[in-house]
Design a protein around this nucleic acid. Structure first.
Lengths: 105, 105
DNA sequence: CAGTATCCTTGTTGATACTG
DNA sequence: CAGTATCAACAAGGATACTG
């Protein structure tokens, strides 16, 4: 049932859901954007991401670590794993689309 | 301040936020996936997207129409606009990543 | 510096029933 | 078929204060 092309886009419903479970939080894309440049410490995120509260930042960082997107040395900075780096094409496409169709506020 | 490459990825913070304001809802990616195949009617979504309630479906459809992602003829089916079709690369990248790193449930 | 603890507000979703 | 109305439940986010 259903067209084949649909299967090609989303073989199992979970694929997109999987990406969304990582990217579907308010500040995650911004955190990842920072990490694509270089590893960062807690206070560096606080400086570069305006208006994020320590509670939320901590929450996002924990989630991302649990999901294997980032890793942190004993008390070192946070860095992307390979899995995290592989998110880059998505982020770039989103930035692409977003700059073509900015939300007018 | 900051590295140049960061600017290249996300020139203005709003770019990614813009994409997320469209894709950041639970069922949106699935609705769009269906529309990438061909225009669909309300009941067709209800059949192909398991467990979505009419209220949520209606809400998503309205949002997407307001955002100019989809359009609907007088009482015809819903179809993607150009703006909506331009989301395809994002969806494909998400599906890509998601199939490489499926969420184990 | 690097977070954690509380508490509160809101957005989003879900269930169910109903209408033109 | 194509939705809307109502209400309840929950998750996410925000504000603020505090600690090792």
């Amino acid at each position: 049932m259903g067209r084949v092309s649909q299967q090609q886009i989303e073989p199992t419903t979970g694929c997109i859901a999987s990406a969304m479970s990582v990217l579907g939080h308010k500040w995650t894309a911004l955190i990842l954007r920072d990490l694509l440049v270089s590893p960062k410490r807690f206070c560096e995120f606080e400086k570069s991401i305006d208006n994020i509260t320590p509670r939320i930042l901590s929450q996002r960082l924990s989630d991302l670590e649990e999901q294997g997107i980032i890793e942190v040395s004993s008390n070192g900075p946070y860095a992307l794993t390979q899995k995290g780096q592989d998110l880059m094409p998505i982020i770039k496409q989103m930035a692409n689309w977003g700059s073509k169709y900015p939300t007018k506020i």
